[in-house]
Structure formats: structure tokens, C-alpha cells
């Protein structure tokens, strides 16, 4: 049962930030697809809910070839999924969104809410980190931009200071000869991933690896980069054994926790398999 709360409904960002600064024990709600679950389970019972659904200033998607992609925090998953420019320039984002829960959830859930909730099983974070995204956050005192990979601190914990909201996600412009891939492993089509892996590969003129990122989901307290495997790839040519080796490193370096859905051992194994497969897929996309 959801406990009673006071409902705050700002119309502008300025108003929202002022209200947020003013009220202690206040949670931000927009789509409510993550927050309402934990409230219903009685895990949290905030005194105030700040509903930013009507703060239209944060509902936008902008793309510029030089600047890259900017997505406002209250943009829904469904909007991202259906945005043609994203489909063309960042296809991995669309394929990730396609598999995020169900259409009903994507119609309500927002990108800002998803990231701020900081569930290590969340889908967007590993993909965005693989694409080297930044996140802009701000409070009544002003805003700041940080690397998305530095945004996640612990299970359901972020680098947001008191009174700060997620404002925008920024993805750098797509590089030539860059490919990215993401897959979560789930038993049910619309479920959260038991584990997930995102990879991006950028090739040089000789077709060798210039840069690579491997980011795992639900493999620890936060989305986890496997830097040891990334370094292994630099300067190398396409080689399936190399991907297998990277997968092995990923299963060693990840820190998954066992629960009723899968043992730690099986999660490590799955993360290795997914890493291998996503690297191969990303590389092949980068080549084409």
C-alpha cells in the first residue's frame, strides 16, 4: 500500500527546483514507472512527491551533427524509440528502447527517471555509457555536467546532490566506423535483464580497433565498464578468439549478486557470453 504523501506540481523548471530545494523528504516523480513500484512495496514512503511531468521545458530531443544528441529528462522511452534521427544516428539506442519493458511502460517511463533511479539492471545506462554520454544535472544554484559513468555511485544511488534534478542526457556525435550493440539476457520478453552487456567499437583506417567500450548491466552495484578487456582490444584486428578472451575477462571482473533468478556463477557465465557476442556484433557494425 502506498502511504499518503503531499503532491507538488510545478509548471516550470525554476519552480520545480525551488520546490525541490524547499522540501525535505521529497521524491521526484515523472512517469512513476520505477518510483511507484518501490512506494507500493513500502520500501520508501516520502512525505512529498514533486511531479515534473508538466515541466515541458525538459521534454525534447535535439540533434546536431557537431554537438550530438541531447535528450531532455522528461522525454519518454517511447519518444526516443520513435524518433527517426535517433534511429538513423544511434540505432543501438532504439533497439535498446524497443526491448525496455512493454509499450505501456515506455509510454510513461522517462529517460531522466530511469537514470536517476539507478537500478543496476536498467537498460539505458550501459548503452549510453558505451556511447560516452554525459548527464547534465542541476539545482536552484545552477547546473553541472558529468560523465554518465561517474553518475552511478551504488545500488539506487547517484551523484545527485540534494536539490538536484537530472536535466539532460548528452550523447556525443556518432564517430565514423563506430558500431555499438546491446543485449540483455531475460527469460521474459518484457522483463528486466538478469544481466546485460553493451559494447561499442571504433575502428581506424586499417580496420583495427581504435577504441572500445564494454559496459555491463546488473553485474554489480552500478553499470560496470570492463576496462581490462577494452584495453586488450586496442590496436587489434577482428578475431573471434579475442572476443572470447574479452568475454572471459568480463566474467572475471564483473561483480554480480545471486538471487532467485540466477546464481552468481551463471550470471558471470552469461556476462562472458554476452560480452563476446556484443563485441562481435559491434565490430561487424563498425565495419559495415
Amino acid at each position: 500500500m502506498i502511504n499518503d504523501f503531499n503532491y507538488l506540481k510545478p509548471d516550470t523548471l525554476k519552480e520545480a527546483l525551488a520546490m525541490y530545494a524547499e522540501h525535505d523528504d521529497c521524491k521526484v516523480i515523472c512517469g512513476g514507472q520505477s518510483l511507484l513500484i518501490v512506494m507500493r512495496q513500502g520500501m520508501i514512503s516520502p512525505e512529498y512527491l514533486l511531479d515534473i511531468k508538466h515541466v515541458t521545458e525538459l521534454d525534447y530531443i535535439k540533434f546536431d551533427k557537431k554537438d550530438g544528441l541531447r535528450i531532455g529528462a522528461t522525454t519518454t522511452h517511447r519518444e526516443i524509440e520513435k524518433f527517426n534521427v535517433i534511429k538513423k544516428n544511434y540505432p543501438v539506442l532504439v533497439s535498446m528502447e524497443n526491448k525496455l519493458a512493454s509499450i505501456q511502460v515506455r509510454n510513461w517511463g522517462t529517460i531522466g527517471g530511469n537514470l536517476a533511479h539507478a537500478d543496476p539492471a536498467g537498460d539505458p545506462a550501459p548503452v549510453l555509457i558505451a556511447l560516452k554520454a554525459n548527464i547534465r544535472v542541476g539545482g536552484a544554484e545552477g547546473d553541472r555536467t558529468i560523465l554518465l559513468e561517474d553518475f552511478f555511485v551504488n545500488y539506487f544511488e547517484t551523484a545527485l546532490n540534494k536539490g538536484e534534478l537530472v536535466l539532460e542526457v548528452h550523447v556525443p556525435p556518432p564517430e565514423p566506423k563506430m558500431g555499438a550493440a546491446y543485449q540483455k539476457f531475460n527469460l521474459l520478453e518484457s522483463d528486466m535483464g538478469i544481466v546485460a552487456a553493451a559494447a561499442s567499437v571504433t575502428l581506424n583506417d586499417k580496420g583495427k580497433c581504435k577504441d572500445a567500450r564494454i559496459v555491463l548491466g546488473n553485474a554489480g552495484a552500478t553499470p560496470k565498464r570492463i576496462k581490462r578487456a577494452e584495453e586488450l582490444l586496442i590496436g587489434k584486428a577482428y578475431d573471434e578468439n579475442l572476443f572470447a578472451e574479452a568475454g572471459k575477462i568480463a566474467s572475471e571482473d564483473c561483480e554480480p549478486v545471486a538471487d532467485i533468478h540466477a546464481s552468481e556463477e551463471h550470471r558471470r557465465h552469461l556476462l562472458g557470453v554476452l560480452t563476446k557476442r556484443m563485441l562481435k556484433k559491434a565490430w561487424e557494425k563498425a565495419r559495415s
Partner: peptide, 24 residues
């Protein structure tokens, strides 16, 4: 065949009980 398993003292709700959906 593949998913459903009620584990006494562990299964509490659909969070810990897999059941196919229409999408599966």
C-alpha cells in the same frame, strides 16, 4: 516446462516467480 517454480519462503510475488506473458 521452463520457468515457473514456487520456492517456499523465497517466492513472494511476481518479482520472484516467472510466468510467461503474451509476449512470450
Amino acid at each position: 516446462a521452463l520457468m515457473e517454480e514456487f520456492v517456499p519462503s523465497k517466492t513472494e510475488s511476481f518479482d520472484s516467480y516467472y510466468i510467461p506473458t503474451s509476449m512470450d
